[in-house]
C-alpha cells in the first residue's frame, strides 16, 4: 500500500508540474530524446546519436515542444509514425500486461511465501 501511495503521489506530482522557461524546455527535450530509440543505430537513443535519423527526430521534438505538446503527446505522435519500437518506455496495453505486472505479482508472491514461513514458525 505504501508503495502504491508513493507511486500515486509521484504520478500526481509529475503530471502537475508545469513548464516554466526555455531552460525547463531544454531539460524536457533531453529527457524525451533519451527515451527515443535511434532506429538506424544499435541500441542507442536519439539523444546519444549523431546520425541523420537522430538529427531529424531532434528537430521534430523541438518543433513539437514549441507547438506546446506534452511529453506523452510527443511519444504518441512518434509511436503512430514509427511504431512502439521507437519509444524506450513501453505502454501498458494488452501486449505488455505481462511485462509490467509479472514482476509485481512475483513480488507479492515472494512476500506471501516469507509471510507464510514466519507464521508457520510462530506456531
Amino acid at each position: 500500500m505504501k508503495i502504491l501511495k508513493i507511486l500515486i503521489i509521484l504520478f500526481l506530482i509529475t503530471s502537475f508540474s508545469e513548464l516554466k522557461s526555455d531552460e525547463v524546455n531544454d531539460i524536457l527535450k533531453n529527457k524525451i530524446l533519451k527515451n527515443i530509440r535511434c532506429l538506424i543505430c544499435q541500441g542507442q537513443s536519439v539523444y546519444d546519436s549523431e546520425s541523420e535519423f537522430a538529427s531529424s527526430i531532434k528537430l521534430i521534438v523541438d518543433r513539437k515542444i514549441n507547438e506546446g505538446l506534452k511529453e506523452k503527446q510527443i511519444y504518441q505522435f512518434l509511436r503512430e509514425k514509427y511504431g512502439d519500437w521507437v519509444i524506450f518506455d513501453p505502454q501498458l496495453n494488452k501486449n505488455t500486461y505481462v511485462l509490467w505486472l509479472l514482476p509485481l505479482l512475483l513480488f507479492l508472491f515472494g512476500g506471501a511465501i516469507i509471510y507464510k514461513k514466519i507464521i508457520s514458525n510462530k506456531k
Partner: peptide, 20 residues
C-alpha cells in the same frame, strides 16, 4: 510486435522499491 524496454521501465519498477 516490436517493443523497446528501456531505462524508464526499469526506473519505474525498481526505484520506488529501493525505499523499503
Amino acid at each position: 510486435e516490436k517493443i523497446s524496454v528501456g531505462p524508464p521501465f526499469y526506473q519505474k519498477l525498481i526505484v520506488p522499491f529501493l525505499i523499503p
